[in-house]
Design a protein around this nucleic acid. Sequence first.
DNA 1: ACGTTATTACCGGTAATTTCGAAATATTGA
DNA 2: TCAATATTTCGAAATTACCGGTAATAACGT
Lengths: 101, 101
Amino acid sequence: MDVDDVAKVLKDLGHPHRLRIFKRLTRSGFDGLPVGVLREDLDIPHSSMTHHVAALVSAGLIEQVREGRILRCVPKYGRLWDVIAFLQSECCVEDRSRQID
Amino acid sequence: MDVDDVAKVLKDLGHPHRLRIFKRLTRSGFDGLPVGVLREDLDIPHSSMTHHVAALVSAGLIEQVREGRILRCVPKYGRLWDVIAFLQSECCVEDRSRQID
DNA sequence: ACGTTATTACCGGTAATTTCGAAATATTGA
DNA sequence: TCAATATTTCGAAATTACCGGTAATAACGT
């Protein structure tokens, strides 16, 4: 991941609704949850929800799988791990001799 | 840090210029760098730079200390660590029995 | 006081985001 | 095919973000 990719993920995750959606999804497990459940849990109107979910999809943080008439949102843990790895390796002191503990 | 705090930090860091600024600062060490150096390194116009620096300050990611006529930007590593800690603890599977590896 | 350097404040224009009701689409079960 | 359910698209307003030129401020050296 390069700087621009990471910036995009951070931006898309950097919204209270979207962070809550992603948190709820990740905690729920590897199967994810339907849009409707998220919507009800977090009390976000239908159309707003769609936009936020779409943003998370475009950031690669979740994917959607259709099952009949419900669309399940599945969290992509690896995407977050990649971002965290970037931050840990690129946003720390370069000169380790001066690193605190 | 609660969800809203984290969302704000992510949002403010989620811009190519600002992520590059923060990366440059953190890598440079605990003393940080003057605005002018960042500006020249990253080739961002004066006034735009001010906006981005202000955003990072408001997110608590950096602080500025005046030294004569130059203003040094100092990265606040702890702020990023807090965000990473939040993501690692709140955006992972709750049921560890199903955690992969 | 004056010129120089470093940085910010102000401003206006443009673009993007957020919001959400209402209508539309897709899918299923009967 | 019809009604019910799940989700998205459309549309439109309000808000916020972004950008960068120019003017203002702050601090220094002489």
